[in-house]
Design a protein around this nucleic acid. Sequence first.
RNA 1: GGGCGAUUAGCUCAGUUGGUAGAGCGCCCGCUUUACACGCGGGUGGUCGGCGGUUCGAGUCCGUCAUCGCCCACCA
Length: 965
Amino acid sequence: MSTPDLPKAYDPKTAEARWYPLWLERRYFHAPDRPENPYCIVIPPPNVTGALHLGHALNNTLQDILIRLRRMQGFDALWMPGTDHAGIATQAVVERRLFEQHKQTRHDLGRDALVQRIWAWKDDYESRILSQLRLMGCSCDWDRTRFTLDETCSRAVRRTFFNLFKAGKIFRGKRLVNWDTQLRTAVADDEIYTEEVNGHIWTFRYPVVGSDEALHVATTRPETMLGDTAVAVHPEDPRYKHLIGREVALPLTNRTIPIIADGILVDPAFGTGCVKVTPAHDPNDYAAGVRNHLPMINLLNPDGTYNENAGPPYTGLDRMAVRKKVIEELKEQGLLERTDSHLVPLKHSDRSKSPIEPYLSDQWFVRMADDPDGTPGFAQQAIEAVTTGKIRIHPERYAKSYIDWLAEKRDWCISRQLWWGHQIPIWHYDGDPHALEAAFTGVADVHWKPAETGGYLVCFENDAVLENAPPNFLQSAQLERDPDVLDTWFSSALWPHSTLGWPEQTPELQGYYPTAVLSTARDIITLWVARMVIFGQFNVGDVPFRDVFIHPVIQDGDGKRMSKSAGNGIDPVDIIEAYGADALRYTLAAATTETQDLRIPVEPVKNDAGEFALRTTYGQPTNWVPQEVWKKSPRDQRVNTSERFEQGRTFPNKFWNSARFAIMNLDGHSPRPVASDDLTIEDRWILSRLDAAIIDTTAHLDSFRFADATRTLRDFTWNDFCDWYLELIKPRLRDESARPVARQVLATVLDNLCRLLHPIMPFVTEEAWQALNAVAPQRGLAEPWGDPAPSVCIAAWPRGQRDRHDPMAESTIGHWQEKIAALRNLRAERGVPEKARINPIIIANGPAAEALRVGESHIRSLTAADSITIVSQLDQRPDQSAATVLPDCEVILPLAGLIDIEAERSRLRKQLGDLERQLQALRSKLGNESFVSRAPAEVVAQTRTRVEELATQYSAVQSLIAALP
RNA sequence: GGGCGAUUAGCUCAGUUGGUAGAGCGCCCGCUUUACACGCGGGUGGUCGGCGGUUCGAGUCCGUCAUCGCCCACCA
């Protein structure tokens, strides 16, 4: 027998470099435009802000498992790849870099130049991200790669906005944003950090009009008092109840403002129980202002100075100067009651590090609420998609957060004061309305309505409409495009249908929409999932997906969420380099349980030179970097290992070696059909176990139980196939006459294993599949016969076959395993040398005896025994022997000259003690009247049987002890 | 402050409808057994976070407390 040249250890690098290009070349991942049997997953488009970390690796591994499974099951499986422009996040990174490297702000550069720079950044990271996905083995249809700002997506955004505007779903409103006065921009909530600073809390007196009384209000930002439009007290506060509805004279101004009751804003037990209300400059006050219909006075200019609403002498001063002056003035007028030191939690912009000002500004919104006539609005429609079961969320508990959030029906603020994104397609028109009508009446794709602030808001569905407007209108028109861009989630919300070509009625859209599954993280259920449902229903008239799978969160060793911004991200490529892509995938899939997040400690190692690297327990790290680089590497080179990935490596290697063993033994095999009568009991057993593995794995994957699927396959491969089946057939493989059937079964099981493991470990299974094709192209038993698939990627997923289920074989092999384990245990406990031959005696009756007789030669070969004597009873035990008493038999190992009598005695006594404890527990249970009468008869009977078994074992052990010298 | 989840072996985690506590890694002992030392055989190790309740019987169901994590809302 010649041995094919297969490496002893699985080498991921070779396999990955060999097979991925081949899969691409053969276009296995390319799904047809007109699917007959569609299955589609759209990738959650990663942000182009940076490279992927293990969290992304997890999500994409799971999606690839599903896609590869369905592809093998014969679906036209489309995995749509792409990336997200990620509005504020990306612009922020680029702006930060611009400032660090050139000390320039975006205002120095201008809109076009900045956007150009961001495109360059996007190109870099997009290619980096896509290459990470390829290295992981992701089987995306790369021909269809999309980007949320590309032409196709832009077209969808434009049409959606237009339709929403026309349908009256878009409106303009006020909203408080976090304003960065230094960068003159709004910043997102997640770009803010709170820092406690030493500040003061000032208490002022506001005189009540027409009374000697005064209300005491406290504030940490005295300058905002110039914008107060009310003072609020608790409606039930006896101190102030009589003043509700009256007015106070607002100091430093000539305004009087009402005293209102607001139980939400005011906590009567806190401070004085009076709160000044500045709706334009504080989020809580803003909400109170809306509730109580208060005027809102904006005091701030974009650069942080106070505007004309503040009035002289404050207009034009910086807010900090205003603060100083306000305090001085109030002090002079005797209205400053007291000043206290106070730790103030102050919000800062993450980008400029300057304090945030809440700033009231004009924004665009999508209406979520129901219509006045009761027609369900967007939020309600999205709720119903889930409550009616059109969309199923897994695990189920996340449906609650989805529904709860939507139930608030909060309008969605879709405008952002940024330059990177889809610019809002609204033009402000200040000219003559008749000219507008004359130019566009009867023209499709344009819609306008009067603006509340005067003039008109005009929405063009595309630029051509505007360009083709009558020349005389264009010349005279006072049109100005809104400078804002759309919230990045606006284009993300279209992703499942925009990527398929909507608004064109493409064959892809008709074929693959609704998509099958969306796999994502739980923190964007509201931001993203809910909005995809809303826009999918609005644009296409159907939900975007049937199932939503919420995957676990990857945390570092301290339980902190792994993220780019936290700097604890691990680059999956580093794991792949150290352990291989299959190891990464296997580990992540194995850890994906329904309830637990996964903790992966980040543990760098340090070498003598003080450099850091990924810790590996196998081989030496190769990617040492100096500490400075380690700490702030743009590549996130801080890599961990934790032994978790070790498991991921050992399993592919184990599988690889079982394949290697099979292939070596299949060399020269002449294929032939095998009738079921030709099968030995161990053949029937492994086929029975295989069948169970197929059925279980398929069911687990169908219900997103990735960890269960992975475990099922691991246990079958390692325990059943490697540990038992391969060992059991080794003698047959050496035997000319028994060899053909064993080989045929071996090839068949390995064939199935390659298929079953392929979605989880695509590379090692392809490596094995190709080698198997070379040596045993004809596989299967009686049925499917002929050429195997040229790649396991497109091989058919195995189907369970009920007729392979064989309880008889399972029980027989179970007997063998149990007795073999007992003998091995005796050998090991007694220190019998590996090579020493033994001649055990087994006392057994009934089915156990029958099973042992059938398996006698197997038991001998697996325990290095020369002979096995099976008897129904034994009058005289050998003088020196060790024994184990099992429920249905007694295993005796004669050890003339080798046995340590005292050790044997104490071991047996320990066993006797264990048995006695168990017996006592069960007997007292049976002695309990209520157990016997109230527990199910079956359980009681089971307990009785168990007691009998234990009692038999007990007396057998007793007599063994008695027999010792 | 509200909601969700977690707490099981030294570590990371499984435990399906209540009915004899499991895996991988680690640790200990023994093995170059011609697939695999990324391996093989054997073993040690747990009053299932605390308290209370329901039940013949609770890791599993209920209540409560503690700790940790996540999401949402955050105090003049």
